[in-house]
Amino acid sequence: MYSILIVDDEVSIRTMLLDYLEGTYEVITAENGEAALALCEQRPFDMVISDINMPGIKGPQLLAEIRRLYPATHTVLITAYNVDDYVRLARRSGVSNIIPKTSPFNFGELDALVSGLLSGNIFGLARYMQPQHYTLLGTFEIRSSHDAKDVREAAVELLTEKLGAAGDMRLILDEIVTNAVYHAPAFPDGTEKYEEFSDVTLAPGEYIHLECGHDGEKYGISIADDMGRLTKETVLFKIERQMSGEGVLDDSGRGLHMSRLFSDRMIINIAPKKRTEVILINYFSHKYRGYKPLYINEL
């Protein structure tokens, strides 16, 4: 059984997470960073979930220390504040997942994140949907730049036809698919293979897979390639530059940033040199309205 350490000075959050996760995992709680470090000395944990603002050692500092001492431990931040304000801090601490404390708390999302990181099984839209209600609407494959446009439009039409909604998927799918077609394929030396917006026929290993589906509560699209060239560090760097406004002149990163802005959830899953997946999710209702999480999973 995987072990999880929960660190939060707010007792109701500690017990809430404990109650939900215990049974599936071995869960221990600590009310501050110092106590957490003492517990880690006694035994290793597979994952530490820590609040950001606590008396004494702050969450990012604590997790940076834990990553230094115990590189195998997965680290996740949780906060009641605006997640976007902490992306820079998180990046410096090597943390790429920040859960917002919403009310009601989004347990489904917590489940997907924790089980994904611990099992290493992070890919696929279905993992982020409620299993008992999930309906796969369609899968598509992009084999050329010519396909790209058709597939994007077909996916959006499918969502609109079946669900009567596609949110801003129409706008952001363009950005994500363009990235996948032109920026994922590369020569062994790392230079990009195709010129942006040129006519391209992809090689079999470069195909891009799209799937879309819903679970009654939300709908989503997954865009995946089999190259895994994107890194967590790159994504965090680019998103953070766009968020702070420093990246306004950057040639890249804007697409990812806009996609995160215009969807309710953007989840990026990376298996280095194997697979990159961007999942875009919109909720039907405003139940989980509030701050957006940061979910970047790199194996």
């Binding site: 109701s12 997470l17 009310s103």
Partner: peptide, 8 residues
């Protein structure tokens, strides 16, 4: 913070 804990 506490509301999230209470409702959760």
């Amino acid at each position: 913070n506490p509301l999230s804990g209470i409702s959760g």
